[in-house]
Amino acid sequence: MGEFTLEQGLKVWRENVPLKDKPYRTIRWGKDLQIWLVEGREFRSPRDMEAGGDRTIWGDEQKQWFVDTVDSSDATFKILFSPTPVVGPDRENKKDNHANQLFAEEGNWLRQYLSEKKGVFVVNGDRHWQYYSVDQETGLREFGAGPVSDAQSGGWSQDDKRPEHQFLRVNGGFLGIKVFRHKEIPKIVFSHYDVDGTIMNKEEFNL
């Protein structure tokens, strides 16, 4: 197809995706839940930029928006939906996420910031295996949704269970999240399902 620039790609993307204004946004659902959807490509530092403190996935404007909106939120539970891992672990050769060395400084900042907030979780949508991980340094919790089909699973070995992994399954399925109150106590449940809807792992939290 010849050369296809980032600007041309963004134009096609915006023609086909029903977004208004900025590609990052936050949605509040009742008293107990607020979610954040972030953009990890449009503002990312160029590949040829030297590693260091200025290298970013989110960009300064999105980072400031994220901090401002999280700080002002009084939701019981807060979920960051990230296209790429924040806790991981991820493959060492990947160069698009906060769990690896290329963006380590921004990743360290993000994990520390989120871990200092109550009721915060991360959901990663773009890795082809299911997992639940806890960062050893900060205690931040992340759920990997995994692929929707077994055929698309891969990229990690079922035998490679690392200290962060509380649950690891290299197969397809989906992640369900339920927020509710039991006797006025707010609760959130994350459930990994297989492709047939059978629960493979379930984690429940309350404040």
Rank of each mutant, 00 (worst) to 15 (best):
G59C: 07
E92G: 10
E39P: 04
S153T: 04
Y132H: 14
E203A: 01
D150S: 03
F180N: 08
P163G: 12
P89A: 09
N206H: 09
P163Y: 13
K63T: 15
K161L: 11
Q152N: 14
N97P: 01
G154D: 07
H182E: 15
T56E: 03
T26F: 00
E15N: 03
R162K: 15
F121M: 02
Y132L: 03
A99K: 04
E106C: 03
N206W: 08
D60F: 13
T138V: 06
K183N: 13
E137S: 14
V86E: 02
A51Y: 12
G2C: 06
D60E: 15
F121Y: 07
V86L: 10
P83L: 14
V148C: 10
W156M: 08
F205S: 04
T69V: 06
P186G: 03
S115D: 14
P18F: 09
Q8V: 04
P23K: 05
D90N: 15
F4Y: 10
F103C: 02
M1A: 10
A104G: 06
D32P: 01
S157G: 11
S191M: 09
K63A: 13
P83W: 11
E184K: 12
S133Y: 00
E204Y: 00
A151N: 11
S153N: 04
L19N: 08
N16C: 10
K31L: 02
V134M: 03
Q130V: 05
W129V: 03
E106D: 11
D160C: 08
G155T: 12
I188L: 06
L33T: 05
T56Y: 09
S153C: 08
D32R: 00
D48S: 15
L207E: 14
T69C: 04
E3N: 08
I185N: 08
Q112C: 05
K202P: 04
A151L: 08
E137T: 14
V86I: 14
Y24E: 09
P85L: 04
F81P: 00
R47Q: 13
T26H: 01
Y193C: 01
F66R: 09
K78S: 14
D60I: 13
V148S: 09
R44C: 00
V123E: 11
H192D: 12
E137D: 15
G146H: 05
D90W: 12
N201G: 05
R14N: 13
M49D: 14
I177F: 08
A104Q: 09
F121E: 02
A145W: 04
K117N: 12
V148N: 03
E7I: 02
Y24H: 13
G53D: 13
I79N: 07
K202G: 07
V189W: 04
G176N: 09
L140R: 12
R181V: 03
G176Y: 01
I185R: 15
E184F: 04
T26I: 02
T56L: 01
Q136I: 03
N124T: 15
V195D: 05
K95L: 09
Y24C: 06
D71A: 11
L110H: 06
N108R: 07
D60Q: 15
R44D: 03
P18G: 10
T5K: 01
Q62R: 11
K117M: 13
P46N: 13
K95Q: 09
D126R: 10
H165M: 11
L10I: 08
G155A: 11
I199N: 05
E184D: 15
F81R: 06
F143P: 02
F66M: 14
V195Y: 04
K117F: 02
K11L: 10
D160L: 11
D74N: 15
P147Y: 02
G52E: 10
N206T: 12
